[in-house]
Amino acid sequence: MPRIFTKKGDCGQTGLADGTRVDKNDTRIEANGCLDELNSILGIVRAMTRQEMAEEVRMIQLDLMSVMTIVAGGHADVSVLREHTERFERIMSESESSFRFVIPGDSLVSAWLDMARAHARTCERRLWKVNADVTLPQELLAYINRLSDYLFLLARKD
């Protein structure tokens, strides 16, 4: 089993998927840190919710891993992100819910989903900053934009 630590980051740099070393404050590293936090928040939701919602959240977590791979310069199938974006749109179009400002906390799960929604918006801003330096696939940017809306819907369904 490989070691958890390498000591390679002790001087303020870390590696991208292709082995390139970048500063730890690189926009890609910042964006991936934000996405990692979102994935962890969704992990809390998945751990405390019913099976159907847990499966839905796990799919989103896997998508976020693909997004992080792309941001780090690796390769992932963006067609899956496109398909899931279209699925989010279809489900939201069929829903009776509409956007409104909410006060989170109707239930513990919905509060965590609202936290994830707000954090997804932060991730989106970080990804647009990355996109200014390194062009990201449009499917990735559309996915993260729809994800925050979809998390809003999921929070209302709990």
Score class of each variant (00 low, 15 high):
residue 90 R to T: 11
residue 74 G to N: 13
residue 92 M to Y: 12
residue 33 G to C: 07
residue 55 E to I: 05
residue 142 A to N: 12
residue 16 L to A: 07
residue 44 I to C: 06
residue 149 D to E: 10
residue 123 C to P: 01
residue 63 D to A: 05
residue 147 L to I: 14
residue 80 V to K: 13
residue 90 R to D: 14
residue 84 H to D: 15
residue 19 G to K: 06
residue 79 S to A: 07
residue 11 C to S: 14
residue 86 E to I: 07
residue 147 L to R: 05
residue 12 G to L: 05
residue 148 S to M: 08
residue 1 M to V: 11
residue 91 I to V: 15
residue 88 F to R: 10
residue 47 A to H: 10
residue 152 F to C: 01
residue 122 T to F: 10
residue 110 S to D: 05
residue 11 C to Y: 09
residue 99 F to H: 07
residue 147 L to C: 06
residue 26 D to H: 02
residue 111 A to P: 01
residue 135 T to Y: 10
residue 124 E to K: 02
residue 126 R to I: 07
residue 156 R to N: 06
residue 19 G to T: 12
residue 14 T to I: 09
residue 152 F to Y: 06
residue 26 D to P: 00
residue 110 S to C: 06
residue 137 P to G: 15
residue 135 T to P: 10
residue 33 G to A: 08
residue 71 V to P: 03
residue 139 E to V: 08
residue 143 Y to V: 06
residue 22 V to P: 01
residue 77 D to G: 04
residue 149 D to Y: 00
residue 144 I to N: 01
residue 43 G to L: 00
residue 73 G to R: 11
residue 67 V to H: 01
residue 30 E to T: 06
residue 109 V to D: 06
residue 158 D to F: 01
residue 54 A to C: 08
residue 39 N to D: 05
residue 16 L to P: 02
residue 28 R to Q: 02
residue 94 E to D: 11
residue 127 L to I: 05
residue 23 D to I: 10
residue 10 D to T: 09
residue 132 A to W: 08
residue 42 L to T: 04
residue 72 A to I: 02
residue 36 D to L: 08
residue 144 I to G: 01
residue 70 I to E: 03
residue 17 A to T: 03
residue 97 S to R: 09
residue 156 R to A: 04
residue 94 E to W: 02
residue 155 A to L: 00
residue 32 N to V: 14
residue 119 H to T: 12
residue 113 L to C: 00
residue 35 L to A: 13
residue 150 Y to V: 00
residue 87 R to S: 14
residue 6 T to C: 12
residue 60 I to A: 12
residue 119 H to M: 07
residue 12 G to H: 13
residue 92 M to H: 13
residue 149 D to Q: 02
residue 112 W to N: 04
residue 12 G to A: 12
residue 128 W to S: 03
residue 51 Q to W: 07
residue 101 F to E: 09
residue 90 R to H: 12
